[in-house]
Design a protein around this nucleic acid. Structure first.
Lengths: 164, 164
DNA sequence: CCTGTATAATAAAGATACTCTACCATAGAG
DNA sequence: CTCTATGGTAGAGTATCTTTATTATACAGG
């Protein structure tokens, strides 16, 4: 029974991961709408929010957008008063996009409820179980990243900032 | 040490979940691009692919699109020969969108590699650990769904197809 | 039965966002 | 101190999204 059960469990995990991803995306879209931002702009803001700073190139990679669209996105965010472009002293070709203080005050509260709920959810797991979850996410992320590169570039590229 | 460790682990899980979501989305976008579909159309096709059938309403909820955009999306998928609209005998107002056989043959191979990799990844976990993962995803999905409703509707609605 | 209201889906207009190409400035290699 | 690669922006043309209006059907109540 344990063996069949395992197969069934694996299916549940795969489907669960999928549905979790969907609900997470829809939740984030709802926040974006609350802020009056479209999906793209909120995705960008989200990265800047978590990192504090981001370059247009990073935003482009993160969102999968073309460089032109990324410029337009930053324009819109800047016009909305949420972010500011700053000179990049390390590379004078580049630009840094930083989050405005008022933006942080506007965005953070919208995440509060979910953050609390997520913490409460994780309180229900033992240290050992949390390790399993953290381990899974790390490996799953690496896996999807590899699969994406495999899809995009045709085949593995050995040298790269990542392992693989 | 165990207690501090737990707090740190929770952070890792939160960040891991986030990055996993990002990599999953980018991976799926790469598949969509391979099929010559934009993000929206592929998201729709993806639902139809996993379910076999879907109504326009379901597609609208799933993608977060307006009804008009959903109609346009189905038009494009139909023009691409990937899906077909069928009459819904249970509700004559409605329509059913079904996946064409050729589409399945075209789409499935693109998921094969990732499916195998995902299976291999899950092989590394015990039955007990898989239960933890499945449990987490179920609860996390419900949590985000509740948070989304909370965000969208302003407050909880007790009666609904879900628990809450 | 048949009237009122809600739901499913579509259509078309106008606004918005995306891709692509071209372009400028700077970095880094040889 | 050239040559090529990288970071970013601009603008044209195309594609997509939202909004409003419309048609058809469902379902509840009198």
């Amino acid at each position: 029974m344990a063996l069949e059960n395992t197969s069934e469990l694996k299916k549940q995990v795969v489907i669960g991961a999928r549905e979790n991803g969907i609900s997470y995306t829809l939740f984030r879209n709802a926040i974006g709408k609350k802020l009056g931002l479209n999906t793209t702009d909120f995705e960008g803001l989200d990265l800047i929010f978590f990192r504090g700073v981001a370059t247009p190139s990073e935003l482009s990679k993160y969102t999968g957008l073309s460089s032109g669209s990324t410029t337009a996105m930053i324009d819109r965010l800047e016009r909305s008063g949420l972010v500011t472009r700053q000179a990049n002293l390390k590379d004078r070709r580049g630009t840094l996009v930083v989050l405005n203080k008022e933006a942080a005050l506007k965005v953070r509260p919208l995440f509060t409820s979910a953050r609390v709920a997520q913490n409460k959810l994780l309180d229900g797991y033992t240290t050992q179980e949390l390790k399993v979850l953290a381990d899974y996410f790390m490996k799953s992320t690496a896996m999807f990243e590899l699969e994406r590169r495999y899809m995009t570039d045709g085949l593995f590229e050995i040298r790269e900032d990542n392992t693989a």
